[in-house]
């Protein structure tokens, strides 16, 4: 199943790499600190430096290369579209060698792509190296509203069940010689898959509610608190990387001025 990175990771067991064992709260706060800094960068040079910083974090995280490349390819597919669209439509003070290409549009698309990739790399290095249950635990300890955390964790659990159900339906269809193609019968079959999945989800929702009632659920969730401390080295690492981010912003402002 094609899931966001952290989810795929946690499916295959404990993620490897130095950030995997790091306190998730530090990683989340660092991510929340770094992303606005990257967004605020304007100059190409500082954006390239931000990309280098993010790539360094990702390399140190020792994440599975193939998985990362696939994620990057998906994201950059969108940026290619952006390059084409902005170069043809952005109001231009300057035109390129081909007179219909806006160089300002290309510049803007380039900056957006650099920012987007830097942010994505930070997320892949820091957030995606944490399995979803660990993420939920950290969010809980950061006092994020309980309902949001439960929405994340229960959705996470159900995504796999729905995925397995879709796969079973696909196999059942394949066993009866179903082949995808551009035919009305195929569209209708995919429509049935989707409808079946929705109907089954509704039924399952009822059964899960029953199971919760059977275990004393009375409308209020009681989180399972676990107490793991934050190591001083982890805090120091967080502060160091954040300071580097601040340095990039300062550099960016100096270059712009």
């Amino acid at each position: 199943m094609n899931l966001p990175d952290g989810l795929a990771d946690s499916r295959s067991g404990s993620p490897a790499g130095p950030f995997a064992g790091m306190d998730t709260r530090v990683k989340l706060l660092l991510t929340l600190g770094l992303l606005p800094l990257i967004i605020s960068l304007q100059g190409v040079a500082s954006l390239v430096l931000a990309l280098v910083l993010a790539a360094t974090l990702l390399v140190s995280a020792r994440r599975p290369t193939r998985q990362i490349l696939i994620r990057l390819a998906f994201a950059n597919g969108f940026f290619v579209f952006l390059f084409v669209a902005l170069s043809l439509t952005y109001p231009a003070k300057e035109l390129g060698a081909w007179h219909f290409v806006s160089l300002d549009g290309l510049h803007l698309a380039g900056r957006i792509a650099l920012k987007g990739n830097a942010m994505l790399l930070v997320l892949l290095a820091l957030v995606a190296s944490t399995p979803v249950p660990g993420l939920a635990n950290a969010l809980q300890r950061l006092r994020v509203p309980q309902k949001l955390i439960l929405l994340l964790t229960y959705t996470y659990r159900q995504v796999f069940i729905i995925g397995e159900e879709m796969e079973r339906m696909r196999q059942a269809a394949a066993a009866r010689c179903f082949r995808p193609g551009l035919r009305l019968h195929v569209y209708r079959t995919f429509g049935y898959f989707l409808a079946q999945s929705l109907v089954r989800s509704l039924d399952r929702g009822q059964r899960i509610h029953d199971a919760m009632l059977m275990r004393g659920f009375a409308g209020c969730f009681h989180p399972l608190q676990r107490n793991d401390g934050v190591a001083p080295a982890e805090v120091a690492f967080g502060v160091l990387v954040f300071t580097l981010g601040l340095g990039l912003v300062a550099l960016d402002r100096m270059v712009l001025n």
Binding site: A136, T153, R157, I208, D210, A211, M212, R215, L224
Partner: peptide, 16 residues
Amino acid sequence: DDQLFSPTVIEDVAFG
């Protein structure tokens, strides 16, 4: 799958 709705085993068993 109806009974086990939490992401980890220990969380599910501790729910009750």
